[in-house]
Design a protein around this nucleic acid. Structure first.
Lengths: 159, 159
DNA sequence: CCATTTACCTTTGACATCAAAGATGCTTTG
DNA sequence: CAAAGCATCTTTGATGTCAAAGGTAAATGG
């Protein structure tokens, strides 16, 4: 039965795992969208959806709008609106690239650096908790498998 | 530096992995939101966002609106609207529970079963591709770690 | 040089999602 | 059995996200 999702037994648990993951994924997405905002940042009307954008900037330094959109797999529109919003509130720094005035270089305002790192910490803590008991090579395998999945999905889209 | 995301070296690569995962997650979410719709279903105005709902119904049989919302980590509002939409188009079957007329039992319309399974197949194929080369116990470890992460995030929300 | 093409960002209008309130039916309790 | 309480779903108004179009600046090339 080609095209079907399930297959006969004997594939050594692969299909069981696939099934579990297909059902787990939307749950995970939903949860991540609800990570609570610390009080210190609530006054700046920061919401969970800003978290990944700020994480990118915190980890990989100043970036352009398109660059951010590509990393987050989100439309440049969305980044542009968010950045406009957050820079108005002093959370982000948006300035023209002197070398190319079409570009806007986006960075975290220095005085918000610490508060944002603290916001990221609980999410990081969740990962740390589940990764710590693993052997180093098991950890490596886990990350690589997830990366491979992302690549596999990206590839499917080409066709 | 408590509360910071990075720590000193010597934690055996945990922090490297955490960092990679924090950056990978939003990418994955974005990609999954863009899984293409097969032509056979496009005429029914089905979009990627319907996929996880249909997957739940395909795997776990008929469910109620609240049940679906809980599994998808989405508001009952959203499920209600989607179900109303899709049942209007004959993709889903929505009928009152005879035992409790407040409930609506949602199921996939039998004649759409096959097309939806085919839509799910590429996503399943991506997982299968990355899981097949693993040993059974490695596979188990991978799934369990992801489940543990989901549980860890759920727990953080309580506090 | 000026004209065309390309790159990057923003604006705009349409749609998806959610929280809160509303509607309906079951359950409990005096 | 009546009334209050609870569970389930839908409706409504507000907000987030996106695709398409618009605006501006750099690159290309005649």
């Amino acid at each position: 039965m080609a095209g079907s999702v399930r297959r006969e037994a004997g594939t050594d648990g692969v299909d069981t795992a696939v099934r579990e993951l297909l059902l787990l994924m939307p749950r995970m997405v939903g949860r991540v969208k609800r990570i609570p905002v610390p009080e210190a940042l609530e006054s700046l009307s920061l919401a969970p959806r800003h978290l990944s954008l700020l994480a990118c900037l915190l980890f990989d330094g100043p970036l352009t709008v398109n660059d951010l959109a590509a990393r987050l797999e989100v439309a440049p529109t969305t980044v542009s609106l968010m950045v406009g919003d957050l820079s108005g509130k002093g959370v982000l720094d948006r300035r023209e690239d002197p070398a190319d005035r079409r570009r806007r270089i986006v960075a975290i305002a220095p005085d918000q650096h610490e508060a944002i790192a603290a916001w990221l910490a609980p999410g990081a803590e969740a990962w740390r908790r589940v990764l710590t008991p693993l052997e180093p090579e098991q950890r490596r395998l886990f990350v690589d498998t997830l990366l491979a999945y992302e690549a596999a999905v990206a590839e499917e889209r080409e066709r």
